[in-house]
């Protein structure tokens, strides 16, 4: 279920590392818990974020949930498709439903990320 090539956080984000860049989204478990997603608030491109900062907000019919960046970095791209099609996060959380791409500014914290197996064991 959770792709093994990705890294995970305890707050249900996933991260796909490619060199000094990464893509971030929320896990299948997270979208399942949220229910129908109806709005996504994205970060601004160029924003400098520290690990744990709010990367965006995901809203279901009933609630608002913050998405945290698993690493420190600069936002280089956001998934603008989510502005009109927030349900992509429900339909394809590990693919089309990605949230933002970041360029890492600090690689120290990468070791604290969870493997798919470690993440699964915490659910």
């Amino acid at each position: 279920m959770n792709p093994s090539e990705l890294k995970y956080t305890e707050t249900h984000e996933w991260l796909n590392l490619e060199g000094n860049k990464c893509t971030v989204g929320i896990t299948d478990h997270a979208q399942e818990q949220l229910g129908d997603i109806v709005f996504v608030e994205l970060p601004e491109e160029g924003a400098e974020l520290s690990k744990g900062d709010v990367l965006g907000n995901i809203e279901s019919v009933k609630s608002v949930s913050e998405v945290y960046t698993p690493v420190s970095g600069r936002v280089i791209e956001v998934n603008e498709k989510l502005l009109d099609n927030p349900e992509l996060v429900n339909q394809d959380p590990f693919g089309e439903g990605w949230i933002a791409k970041l360029e890492l500014t600090d690689t120290d914290s990468l070791g604290e990320l969870l493997t798919a197996e470690e993440y699964r064991s915490k659910l």
């Binding site: 229910g35 129908d36 109806v38 279901s60 019919v61 009933k62």
Partner: peptide
């Protein structure tokens, strides 16, 4: 129950 199949559906 808050939902079964999904609130929107």
């Amino acid at each position: 129950p808050i939902q079964y199949s999904g609130i929107i559906n």
